[in-house]
């Protein structure tokens, strides 16, 4: 029974991490094809990738879109959660549903819908439009996370702050937001990782400046290369960093 459990554990983690592991391994390939046998290790592909302006530009574009769209999504999500959690509004259950519903819509549909709207209104495609698309997909998530953590104990503290003379703005800035900091940070970092990896919407809604997944896709069309593995490894490293930062900030908050 014990052996079976270990076997299951190894199998499960192997299933999850083997593809990533292979990707990272062949990014160090000394040769032009990321396939066995493994020769190396060599850092040539990393130097090549980091010297490639298209790739580094796309990488920075991705970071800007991820951080900018996440900040907007979290801000809007927070405001929506605050409004719906703290005020009795007509149809608030319906509004909650409406806010979360985009989670169920595929990214392709969201991207296509936005593309049609943008074409009609004559707004040119850019990183901003891709960012808008990412706000659309991340807002429901940010709202759900922040709304779920708005408890009654927060409400009482807000009431106390009001009683002590705080204006609504001060209540939100000095009491509500700091008390919800762990949830806000969680929503932000999750949004960043999702936006960072997102391809379809970014593909449909960008034109000249593109994000990294779109750049990778265009490079893929010219066939497999350890270059892609190197880029993939860098992407993976950044995602892992975001998740670790999230984990540690959350853990630190929970312990204090």
């Amino acid at each position: 029974m014990r052996m079976a459990a270990w076997f299951y554990l190894v199998l499960a983690f192997g299933f999850i991490y083997l593809p990533v592991g292979t990707l990272v391994l062949y990014s160090f390939q000394d040769g032009t094809l990321p396939v066995p046998p493994f020769n190396g290790p060599s850092l040539q592909w990393y130097t090549e990738v980091l010297a490639d302006d298209d790739v580094t530009d796309a990488l920075f574009n991705s970071l800007i879109v991820a951080i900018g769209s996440s900040a907007v999504a979290v801000l809007l999500g927070f405001l929506a959660a605050y409004g719906l959690a703290r005020h009795v509004l007509p149809g608030s259950a319906f509004m909650r549903g409406l806010l979360i519903a985009p989670l169920t819509v595929s990214y392709l549909i969201v991207g296509l819908g936005l593309l049609i709207v943008l074409n009609r209104t004559g707004v040119g495609l850019s990183l901003v439009t891709a960012g808008i698309g990412h706000v659309v997909i991340n807002l429901p998530l940010a709202f759900a996370i922040i709304y779920a953590s708005m408890g009654a104990q927060h409400e009482n503290a807000e009431r106390a702050a009001r009683d002590l003379g705080a204006s609504e703005t001060k209540v939100v800035l000095l009491v509500t937001a700091p008390m919800l900091a762990p949830a806000i940070a969680a929503a932000f970092f999750l949004s960043v990782t999702l936006s960072w990896d997102e391809f379809i919407i970014a593909f449909l809604l960008t034109r000249f400046d593109i994000t990294l997944p779109v750049e990778i896709w265009s490079m893929l069309r010219s066939g497999l290369s350890p270059r892609l593995n190197a880029i993939g490894s860098v992407v993976f490293l950044i995602s892992v960093t975001a998740v670790l930062v999230l984990e540690f900030t959350m853990l630190r908050r929970r312990q204090s």
């Binding site: 009482n156 106390a160 009683d163 009491v175």
Partner: peptide, 16 residues
């Protein structure tokens, strides 16, 4: 409440 010369001490203390 903010404009009244009263303050309330809440049951669950409601500290920040």
């Amino acid at each position: 409440p903010a404009k009244r010369p009263t303050t309330t001490m809440f049951q669950d203390y409601a500290l920040f």
